[in-house]
């Protein structure tokens, strides 16, 4: 029983990172009906940028901020170079194009920083916290990861519910024509959405890096988990992305702990398939409202 609870606790911070990556996927999907498979490639690129900054300055926080800025810029570049020219093509073409961007980014990272896995310095204490006479499977750094994720989720929900750009983003996602007729410059709003998703993905990358290593393909597995969480969550729903992201973290931790970590992606894909068969709109999807 103790180990069961330990596995659950140990999965929370990993779940937080998956939730962030799932949010990035949902942000783009809601606005454009495109699943941006390049998101992990963008995150990996910005994590290498962060690693460079961290190596040069020694500052974890500065590296995080630089990665966020780079994530925004890279998101805008991907949208301008690849997605804008494909606006008139169907969305399946655009989705395949995002795969192309992923491969191009992996190649670019390999050329700039090399193809070997590199260690990302551990910014905070990574040892299990000691309390109530035992060592817990959660570290100070895990709390930092969870804290940053909670702050970012709160900031995003405030952005969407309290600001003009947030309302414009929601309106553009639900009904771009009515948004344009209301005077919203929808193409600018979309660009802002790509930048925002880039920032969220960049944070996920920097947060997860110390727990693994960084190489051009390290984050591919994160894509599998984040995509699963986003789809089961309904793809349209930020709440769904957060809830299922954290849930995925717990499941992975349990599966890895009770069997071995190689089984986690298999379990994720089985859950994905089951969800698509039984609840294609996702647990938090709201396609019902669109039909009214």
């Amino acid at each position: 029983m103790t180990s069961f609870i330990d596995y659950l606790i140990g999965g929370v911070s990993n779940g937080a990172v998956i939730a962030l990556m799932a949010i990035a996927l949902v942000l783009i999907w809601r606005a454009t009906r495109v699943v941006n498979f390049a998101q992990v490639g963008q995150a990996m690129f910005t994590t290498f940028v962060a690693l460079t900054v961290q190596t040069l300055t020694g500052s974890w926080a500065l590296a995080l901020v630089v990665a966020m800025v780079a994530g925004a810029i890279l998101g805008v570049i991907v949208q301008f170079l690849v997605l804008r020219p494909m606006r008139r093509a169907d969305t399946s073409g655009a989705i395949i194009a995002t795969f192309g961007v992923l491969i191009a980014l992996q190649a670019a990272v390999g050329m700039i920083w090399g193809g070997d896995a590199q260690a990302y310095p551990q910014p905070f204490d990574n040892a299990g916290v000691v309390a109530f006479g035992r060592i817990w499977p959660i570290s100070v750094y895990d709390f930092v990861v969870i804290g940053v994720t909670i702050l970012l989720v709160i900031a995003l929900s405030l952005l969407f519910t309290r600001t003009s750009i947030g309302l414009a983003m929601r309106a553009s996602a639900f009904n771009p024509e009515v948004a344009r007729l209301s005077g919203v410059r929808v193409s600018r709003v979309l660009t802002f959405g790509w930048a925002l998703a880039g920032v969220v993905g960049a944070v996920a990358g920097v947060l997860v890096a110390p727990s693994s290593t960084v190489s051009p393909t390290t984050f591919d597995i994160l894509l599998v988990f984040a995509f699963t969480a986003a789809v089961i969550g309904g793809l349209d729903s930020l709440v769904g992305a957060v809830a299922l992201g954290v849930f995925a973290g717990l499941v992975i931790s349990l599966v890895s702990g009770l069997s071995n970590s190689g089984n986690a992606p298999v379990v994720a894909l089985v859950l994905l398939a089951l969800s698509l068969i039984t609840k294609p709109d996702g647990v938090f999807g709201h396609h019902k409202a669109r039909a009214v």
Partner: peptide
């Protein structure tokens, strides 16, 4: 436009605010 062009997922106040954002 034709067909009651409101955005069903937004509140009444948000639909109005959108019109003059």
């Amino acid at each position: 436009p034709e067909g009651r062009s409101t955005i069903p997922e937004l509140t009444v106040e948000e639909n109005l605010r959108l019109g003059g954002l």
